[in-house]
Design a protein around this nucleic acid. Structure first.
Lengths: 311, 311
DNA sequence: CGATTTCCATACCGAGGAGGTATAGTAGCG
DNA sequence: CGCTACTATACCTCCTCGGTATGGAAATCG
C-alpha cells in the first residue's frame, strides 16, 4: 500500500467518478483505474461497486475513504511540524505517558517544567507502557510514565507510587449500590471489559493476572482498545471494568465506582528513563516530582485513598 | 514524501546505522542513503547528524521518527480493518461527532441503537463540525453531531438543543472564587485559550465572535488543537477558556468553572444528515433521541442549567 | 428498444526512478 | 598513522508508473 494509492482512492471516492478524479489528479484515467485495482488486489477487498453509476463505495471502501483522508491530513501535519522543528533549532523534551497519567500528575509536572525551563519545547506523547521502553531506547521520548513493570539493561525505572484500583459498574447494577470496598471474588461470573487490546503485555494482562491468582473467572472477557471505550461500554451496561482510581475523573457521573478491598489490588506509576541520562535533566525532573508529591495535590489524594483497616 | 521513505527512515533511526538498516530492509545500502537524502531534501531539513558515529537524530529527525512510527502502525491497522470489514459484509452506520458530545448524549444514543439494531455495526468517528458536512456528502459518515451552523443544499440539520457556556479558570485565579455567573465583559484583558485551531470555521470562531460582538478584547488569544490541551493549559495557569457546560465533566476537580451570565452565551448541538436519507434509519434515530431527551439524563441536566432570573 | 453518450477496463509503449555494484571519502580507534 | 567501519557518489539495469488507443458495459434519450 502506497500513499499515492491512498490519494488516488480518496480522489475517486470523493468524485465517485474515475475520469473526473483523474482530471483533478492531473493524470489520465487508465493509470488511475490500474492503481485502484492494484489497491483492491493487495487488500483482497472490493472498495467500489462498479456495477452501477454513479459509483458507490462498499462498506470497506467507505471505511478506507474515511481513514485514508485522515491519514493523509496527518501526514501533511507531520511534514509541516518536522520542517518547523528543523528551523527552530530549540531543544525538545518528549514525555511518553499512558493516558491515565494525563488525569494525574503530568499536567502539573509539565507546568513546573515550563516554569523552570522556558527555553525548552516540551511535548507529550500518549503511548502504552511497553511501547515506552523501545521509545526510550531509540530516543523518541526522554522519559516515560507507565504502569507495567519491565526490565531492560539500558532503562532505569523508579516506582513513584502504587495507585489503588477500582471497579467501574453500570448505574443500576446490583453490585453498584453498596458504597463500601468490593472484593475481587465478587467479580466471579460477571462480564469483564479490559483494555488496552494491544500491545501486549499491558494493563489488561495485569488485571487478568490479578484475577487469575485469585481463581476469579469472569463470565466473559472483552478487550477494547482504550479506557474511553471501556467506560463507554460499562455505561452502556455491557460489563464491568477495573481501572486505576484516578481515572474515575474521566467519567464521574454515569458510571459507579467501588474501591477494591483486596490489599494487592494496586497498579504502580513507574517513571523510566535511559540509564545514560540519569544525571541530566532527569535528575531535576525527579526533584520536581518530589516537590509535587510533597504538595499533596488532589489527584494524588484520590489515588491514595487508604482502605479502612479491617482488623 | 512516500511511505517507503518513512519506512526506510524509521529503520535507519532505529538502527542508528545505514548498513544494518539496509540489511533489515533487504536492500543495499546506497539506495537507502539516497532515499534518506531525498527525504531530507524534500523537507528541507536535516534529519540525521552524520558528523559522528553512531548516528544521532536531530530534533526534527526525532520528531519525524516518533510520528512516522505511529503513522506506519496506523496504516497497518487501517489495512487490517478494511479487510475485516470487506469480509464481514455487515451494514455499518458511522456517526461523526465533535468530542464534547462524547461526554453528552452519544454514548447513550449508541447504546439505544445497539439495542434496537443488533445486526448493525455502529462506529463513532470524532471530527470537527465543519468536517462533518463534507464527510456526510461523500458518505464517510451517516449522521453528524456538531456545534457550528452551516448551510448546504444536500444536508439537512436539526438543532437538538442550546447548551450553556461556562468559563474555565485556574484554581486560585481571583475570578475563580465567586460561584455566581460571570459576565463575558469580565474576560476583558484576561489571557484566553480557544480550540480547535483547525479547521476553520470552528468553535473557536464562535467564541471569538461572541466576545467580538461585546467588544471584549482578551489580553492574548492562544489557539490549541483540542479541548484537553486547552483545559490542561487552564489548569497550568496559562489562561482562561470558554467551553460548553457539559464538557466540565472532563476535568472536574483541578479547574474552576463559572456559568456565563450573558443570555446569548450558548452553543447549539446540531444533528445533520443527508437530505436523501431523511426517511430511513435517520427518522428512527430522531425518534430514539427524543425518547432520550424525554428521560432527562444527567448530562442533559448539566448543560441545561437555567440562569437565575435577574429581574 | 435501439442508438448514442458516458465511462471504466484492457493492451501496449516510453520515460523516470528505484535498486544493485563498484568505489571513493570520512569518522573512529588503536 | 594506518586500519576498520561506515556513508556518499557514480553508473547501470530493470521495474513500474503514466500516456495513448481501443474495447466493452452502463446509463440516457428519442
Amino acid at each position: 500500500m502506497d500513499l499515492r494509492q491512498l490519494r488516488y482512492f480518496v480522489a475517486v471516492a470523493r468524485e465517485q467518478n474515475f475520469s473526473r478524479a483523474a482530471d483533478k489528479l492531473h493524470i489520465a484515467q487508465p493509470p488511475l483505474s490500474r492503481q485502484i485495482q492494484q489497491l483492491e488486489e493487495e487488500l483482497g477487498v472490493n472498495l467500489l461497486d462498479r456495477s452501477k453509476r454513479p459509483l458507490t463505495l462498499t462498506e470497506a471502501g467507505r471505511f478506507l475513504y474515511q481513514q485514508a483522508t485522515r491519514t493523509l491530513v496527518n501526514i501533511d501535519h507531520i511534514k509541516e511540524q518536522t520542517q518547523r522543528i528543523g528551523r527552530s533549532q530549540r531543544e525538545r523534551f518528549v514525555i511518553g505517558c499512558v493516558g491515565s497519567t494525563l488525569y494525574g500528575g503530568i499536567p502539573d509536572l509539565v507546568r513546573r517544567m515550563r516554569a523552570q525551563w522556558p527555553e525548552l519545547d516540551i511535548e507529550i506523547s500518549e503511548m502504552m507502557s511497553t511501547e515506552q521502553v523501545t521509545a526510550l531506547k531509540d530516543g523518541r521520548i526522554d522519559v516515560g510514565f507507565g504502569r507495567v513493570r519491565f526490565n531492560d539493561r539500558e532503562v532505569e525505572r523508579l516506582t513513584l507510587r502504587e495507585e489503588r484500583l477500582v471497579v467501574a459498574l453500570p448505574k443500576g447494577h446490583a453490585k453498584s449500590l453498596p458504597k463500601d470496598p468490593i472484593a475481587l471474588i465478587e467479580l466471579q461470573d460477571e462480564p469483564l471489559i479490559v483494555y488496552p487490546s494491544t500491545p501486549r503485555p499491558s494493563f489488561a494482562d495485569e488485571i487478568l493476572n490479578l484475577l487469575g491468582e485469585l481463581d476469579v473467572v469472569p463470565a466473559s472477557v472483552e478487550e477494547v482498545r482504550e479506557i474511553q471505550a471501556a467506560l463507554g461500554m460499562v455505561a452502556a451496561g455491557m460489563g464491568l471494568c477495573i481501572i486505576p482510581a484516578a481515572s474515575q475523573r474521566q467519567r464521574p457521573d454515569d458510571v459507579c465506582y467501588r474501591m477494591i478491598a483486596d490489599e494487592n489490588a494496586t497498579s504502580p506509576i513507574i517513571m523510566s528513563y535511559r540509564r545514560a541520562d540519569a544525571n541530566g535533566r532527569i535528575k531535576q525532573v525527579k526533584q520536581l516530582i518530589s516537590e509535587m508529591y510533597a504538595a499533596n495535590p488532589p489527584w494524588l489524594q484520590l489515588s491514595n485513598i487508604r482502605l479502612p483497616s479491617s482488623h
